[in-house]
Amino acid sequence: MAVAITLRSVTKTYSRGGETLRVLDELDLDMDGGTFYALMGPSGSGKTTLLNLVGGLDHCDSGLVQVGGDDLNSLSASELAAWRSANVGFVFQGFNLLPVLSARENVELPLLLAPLSRKQRREQAERALELVGLKDRMKHKPRELSGGQEQRVAIARAIATDPQVLLADEPTGDLDRESADAVLQIMQRLNRELNKTVLMVTHDPQAATYADQTIHLDKGKLGGIEDNRTEAGAN
């Protein structure tokens, strides 16, 4: 079942050097389940903060963050961890694979929290790697992979537990165009074929064309939503 995301009057502030920064300011936003969203805006507009709130990595100061009906603000740190494990997959700009583990072991990592046997975990990790076209590289350590391959392993790890929401923070920021396109195509496939709700922070307008809609943030407020499906040349 596709998972929708709702934000109501969400405010998030940070204190830095004695100054209070209002990163998200009474933000209202509705995202449909099973849709691929690109999240754009200038630096400091609150993109990553929004992603962290939706991913249950942080709490907002006030307002409502609801993902698939779950009010994330009402969950404790421990409940949020369990919620993240079951509902959301993360892809980061810096890949964030554990360097001491092989590609398959990295993908297996979130499966340790699922009630699976060792054999089942391996099989599921291999299926996820197959989905991103890297089954033949499963025994390689991250340092033995290219940037594009590392990011595909990270995507495989993000989808290994079959979460309904995939959150990506500038997933192509460190990649060349060719690798970036390969990664974006995989994310698009995950959205279109497996009906996952995808929210991707990006500075790259070309990357945003892979999304169904582009959300623009400006100084913590909604700047507008653009429907890429009506645009000519959309992927």
Binding site: L57, A77, A81, S85, A86, L109
Partner: peptide
């Protein structure tokens, strides 16, 4: 620290 942050993001509890 970053690796531990990744594990937390994946759902591993603080304990």
């Amino acid at each position: 620290t970053r690796d531990l942050g990744i594990m937390k993001a994946l759902g591993f509890k603080n304990g």
